[in-house]
Amino acid sequence: MPDGTGDEVGVSALAFVQAFIQQNWALSPYLLDQSRLRDLEAKATLSYAASGEMIRYRINTPSGNQQFDDSLKKAITKSKQLPQPLPKQLDLLVTFNLKEMARGK
């Protein structure tokens, strides 16, 4: 996956941040209409300083589903401080969806 950082350190930092945010995202499928899992998607921009601190975030395109959007806000709140610093500042455009979850349904 092109990550825009251009080096191995960047790739590994990106994978780490992605895994960290995903790990902090908790959402039960029983909160949602099972037939709508494939339709739910939201986009958020997150910016981390090299220290690992989230310096700003915004949910650009909410999904419109309250439970889904609330779970994202919590995931972002829980991800405000990375457990380790980054090689440099990282600006992310994150797409959250349930493609994998929907595959199992």
């Binding site: 990550d3 990106l14 992605q18 910016s47 600006d91 992310l92 959250f96 969806n97 349930l98 493609k99």
Partner: peptide, 8 residues
């Protein structure tokens, strides 16, 4: 910004 996708 670097684009990533979290699909579950």
């Amino acid at each position: 910004a670097t684009e990533i996708e979290i699909s579950s």
